[in-house]
């Protein structure tokens, strides 16, 4: 217990002193995960919206698949992306293995189904509630989609943040495709895994504190936004 308190104090001083190694790791983590979520949203949101309002054969099966992929094990994603990018793999010529780009690709694969599934749920419930209203205002089915998306933008931001929360916290995929190379592909989660096994607990703890702070910030943002999206629920909780 004595040890833990001491390590924790060292960790705090690392954070407060703005240790440059620590900051680099944090910035790389944020960069990789934000880019992965950005591209994930570019693909996942239109896909989710199409699944919500489209009527085509295989739609049900696709929804089940996307929902199932929400729980993809990161190490398996890491393994698959590794096989694709490795020297002998189909994309080996790109020489992306052990680069931040490889990590972005792996996290993109992880978060896209999450964003797509949450977008589908959001748009589907909006559609069920408001589609006839929009139809009565002269809109075609296709034209009502952007109106729904725009009015559901806060709920959709929740999907984006959920994807980000998943990406920033996972270790399995980035450690396999990134290789945890110092100053190149070392991010918060992989550093924690490595430093803990080396016994350098203060750096691991410092990163852990930052990671948890980010997780709390993301969740607080989601909850604030959800409250803004439906103020009557917030009001009821006061009663």
């Amino acid at each position: 217990m004595q040890d833990f308190a001491q390590e924790f104090m060292t960790a705090l001083s690392l954070i407060l002193s703005g240790d440059s190694e620590l900051l680099n790791i944090v910035f790389l983590s944020l960069k990789v995960s934000l880019l992965a979520v950005f591209f994930g949203a570019l693909v996942g949101m239109p896909l989710g919206a199409a699944l919500a309002v489209g009527r085509f054969p295989g739609r049900r099966a696709l929804i089940v698949l996307v929902n199932a992929l929400m729980g993809l094990p990161p190490v398996v994603v890491g393994l698959c992306v590794y096989l694709m990018l490795s020297r002998s793999g189909p994309l080996g010529v790109l020489q992306l293995l052990y680069t931040p780009t490889a990590m972005i690709i792996a996290q993109f694969v992880l978060v896209t189904p999450i964003i797509a599934a949450l977008t589908r749920q959001t748009v589907e419930s909006l559609d069920a509630e408001y589609t006839e209203q929009l139809r009565s205002l002269g809109l075609s089915r296709l034209a009502s989609v952007p109106v729904l998306l725009w009015d559901g933008r806060i709920a959709l931001l929740t999907a984006f943040l959920a994807g980000f929360g998943r990406a920033i916290a996972e270790v399995g995929a980035v450690i396999i495709v990134g290789g945890n190379i110092n100053h190149v592909t070392r991010v918060m989660t992989t550093t924690i895994a490595l430093e803990t096994s080396k016994g350098n607990l203060s750096l691991a703890l410092a990163l852990g504190v930052i990671l948890i702070a980010i997780a709390i910030a993301v969740n607080a943002a989601v909850s604030l936004l959800a409250r803004g999206a439906a103020p009557q629920r917030g009001e009821l909780s006061h009663a």
Partner: peptide, 20 residues
Amino acid sequence: ARRKRAYGYVFQAAGLYPWR
């Protein structure tokens, strides 16, 4: 007529957006 916005329709439920 619908596409020309010939009518306004009032549904059984008010159907107002709660966030607006």
